[in-house]
């Protein structure tokens, strides 16, 4: 499974949706994930890829990690996975 597929699977599970119902341009809010759900998703992604995501729930928009859409989240994680491998 690709990074993108794994991330979509985690997000879909959090949103209690089928993976086919999650599109890359969705924001997490679009698919009903609130601030608690976001923190849980970040945790699940960190566990899956064994990475640390720079994310502060107090100021999500100021974190060094873009969470505005599913696609942005995937991009960020691909970068972190690559950095970790390097």
């Amino acid at each position: 499974m690709s990074v993108a597929d794994k991330v979509v699977k985690i997000i879909a599970e959090q949103a209690m949706l089928e993976t086919s119902d999650v599109s890359l341009d969705n924001s997490l809010e679009d698919i009903g994930i609130d601030s608690l759900g976001l923190v849980e998703s970040i945790f699940a992604i960190e566990e899956e890829f064994d990475i640390t995501i720079p994310f502060n729930a107090n100021a999500p928009s100021n974190s060094d990690f873009d969470i505005t859409s599913v696609a942005k989240i995937i991009q960020g994680i691909e970068r972190l996975v690559k950095e970790q491998a390097a």
Partner: peptide, 20 residues
């Protein structure tokens, strides 16, 4: 730590640059 609402540097209530 798990909740991700903790500051790594200081507690700055009501200040625009607070971070937890």
């Amino acid at each position: 730590e798990g909740l991700r609402v903790m500051s790594k540097d200081a507690c700055r209530p009501f200040s625009a640059n607070r971070n937890g």
